[in-house]
């Protein structure tokens, strides 16, 4: 049973009287705990697909359901609530609220959820430890490196213990090494917490680390391959090593 089911998905954008067919009929099922990459050339519809799965955008045709709930039946308010509690987002860059510290950025989601102060701080600190940023808890994003900022974004995405984390090119602004470390962190969280990760990428290094690779071309699925765990060469993330 798929956690996410996409059926007959079509998305057209109208811009300047021209119809852009961003997604031209996609059927997809993604199961709980998967670690999937959506790859494909620029303009192939990766971002569009992630946005629709996350309830940020509405399909032109077709249905998307998450945990059996058809997103098309939800009001904007309910979609907002869904994103707050069930889905975590990580964007390419500038994910964080600049005036809040790393800890506060992670806490922000819990604040929105109405979690009380003590639990909020405890859980957020635990998450920062998990992403290896305990020491940077009280720094604002401007004082963190790009990789550290993305780790905070990962922390903010997982702190509410969502079912799914959607990451749109999370490593695009990072160098190879930092990007690989971020991927390893995400993979480790995926293993330990059984959180479903879907990320889009251009990067072959990132594709290699995925357990499932969905390749889009011109808004359609060109190939969809699942690799055996044996093929996956897993590295310990640097932060995790330090902790032990």
């Amino acid at each position: 049973m798929g956690l996410i089911t996409v059926r007959g998905l079509v998305k057209n954008y109208e811009s300047n009287g021209i119809t852009v067919r961003a997604i031209r009929g996609i059927d997809l099922a993604i199961g709980r705990g998967e670690f999937s990459a959506i790859a494909g050339p620029s303009g192939s519809g990766k971002t569009t697909l992630l946005n629709i799965i996350g309830g940020l955008d509405r399909p032109t045709e077709g249905r998307v359901s998450v945990s059996g709930t058809d997103l098309g039946t939800l009001s904007p308010r309910e979609l907002s609530e869904l994103r707050l509690r069930r889905i975590g987002f990580i964007f390419q860059a500038y994910n964080l609220i600049p005036v809040l510290t790393a800890l506060e950025n992670v806490e922000y989601v819990l604040l929105l959820q109405g979690v009380d102060r003590e639990e909020r701080t405890r859980r957020s600190m635990a998450i920062l430890r998990e992403v290896g940023l305990e020491a940077e808890a009280h720094r604002v994003p401007g004082k963190l490196s790009g990789g550290q900022q993305q780790r905070v974004a990962v922390g903010r995405a997982i702190v509410s213990e969502p079912d799914i984390i959607l990451a749109d090119e999370p490593t695009a602004n990072l160098d190879q090494k930092t990007g690989a470390a971020l991927l390893d962190l995400m993979h480790e969280l995926n293993h330990r917490r059984k959180t479903t990760f879907i990320f889009s990428t251009h990067d072959s290094m990132v594709m290699e680390r995925a357990e499932r690779l969905i390749y889009l071309v011109d808004g359609s699925v060109d190939s969809d391959r699942t690799r055996g765990a044996a093929h996956f060469t897993r590295k310990k993330p640097a932060a995790a090593k330090k902790r032990k």
Binding site: G54, F89, Y94, P98, Y108
Partner: peptide
């Protein structure tokens, strides 16, 4: 962009 991110992660328009 910042407001976009806030809205994406579940901040309501009222907030």
């Amino acid at each position: 962009r910042e407001f976009g991110v806030m809205l994406s992660i579940g901040t309501t328009p009222g907030q």
